[in-house]
């Protein structure tokens, strides 16, 4: 392999693969943009309803993405509210309290949880609804709350792992400062360790938001429907952006609906990319702060 020909071939291979991947990515984005850019008007989101009428919920939006976006927003907020306390506390326990052996066991469990396909989590949520419906509340059907709960289970392992990693990667000098001044373990965690790890944890939470926004498998089993309007309570069914895209791809009636589907794809990509950039920025800022410290 000493011949420069091999070297040349290797570089060519690396370049080729990179070009193929970039090409495929650009084709996907480009295809959506070309097909869907005509749909990118306020009409796509609000239909015939005025902006303020829609946002202030004065009039219902019928042929726009507004209800789907509102549904996705409610879903994200609810599942993050459910997942953050649990994920944070579990991550803190693993990083600060657990002995190595205990940590080994629990990380295995959470790795398995992270590996469970989202549709299985959705199935779990569906069965819980069924169980509760038959045994306790016969008015309970698949709804926003159940979806949010299932999504919370889905993002829980990510949240646990980011919290744990963020705390464990803090340098010893930060870790010992407060105890040397007489802080208890809890004070050390609350006053020093968590604030120092905050931006990493936040970037993990934002990535989890991205997952909640994009996941379709869970919600199609637990209460997302094609037309529901703005969700009225956590016990009602709802519309969601990714489910709308899936629905359009198989059930579109005419060309204009399909164009709206392309538009919805662009909106969803835009949202997810922004979340990604935000999370990336938070992580960058942290590493820069660490760089300047020394």
């Amino acid at each position: 392999m000493a011949s420069p020909l091999w070297d040349r071939a290797f570089r060519l291979f690396a370049w080729g693969c990179s070009l193929v991947l970039m090409g495929a990515f650009l084709v996907i984005i480009g295809f959506l943009c070309i097909k869907g850019y005509t749909a990118l008007t306020p009409r796509l989101i609000f239909g015939d309803t005025g902006f303020w009428d829609a946002v202030l919920l004065r009039r219902q939006v019928f042929d726009g993405l507004f209800p789907a976006m509102a549904g996705t927003l409610c879903l994200i907020m609810l599942s993050i509210v459910l997942a953050v306390p649990l994920g944070l506390s579990t991550g803190i326990f693993l990083a600060e309290y657990a002995s190595p052996r205990v940590k080994w066991f629990f990380s295995l469990v959470f790795d398995i949880l992270a590996g469970i396909p989202s549709i299985v989590v959705g199935l779990f949520g569906f069965c819980i609804t069924l169980f509760l419906h038959q045994c306790f509340f016969d008015r309970l059907y698949p709804c926003l709350l159940i979806s949010a709960l299932s999504l919370a289970f889905l993002v829980l392992p990510y949240m646990i792992r980011t919290t744990q990693m963020a705390l464990e990667s803090l340098p010893v000098s930060v870790r010992l400062t407060a105890p040397s001044l007489g802080a208890t373990q809890l004070q050390n965690i609350v006053y020093v360790l968590l604030p120092a790890a905050l931006s990493t944890i936040l970037s993990g939470i934002i990535l989890s938001i991205g997952r909640c926004a994009e996941d379709t498998a869970v919600i199609m089993l637990t209460g997302a429907v094609a037309t529901a309007g703005i969700p009225k309570s956590v016990f009602s069914s709802y519309e969601a952006l990714p489910f709308y895209i899936y629905y359009i791809s198989s059930q579109y009636a005419d060309h204009s609906e399909l164009i709206k589907g392309y538009g919805a794809c662009l909106v969803l990509i835009f949202i997810c990319m922004n979340l990604f950039v935000l999370s990336h920025f938070l992580k960058k800022r942290l590493s820069q702060r660490l760089l300047f410290r020394h």
Partner: peptide, 12 residues
């Protein structure tokens, strides 16, 4: 321990 460390300070 926390009482002890308040009486026995440390500089790194």
């Amino acid at each position: 321990v926390s009482e002890l460390r308040k009486k026995v300070g440390m500089v790194f």
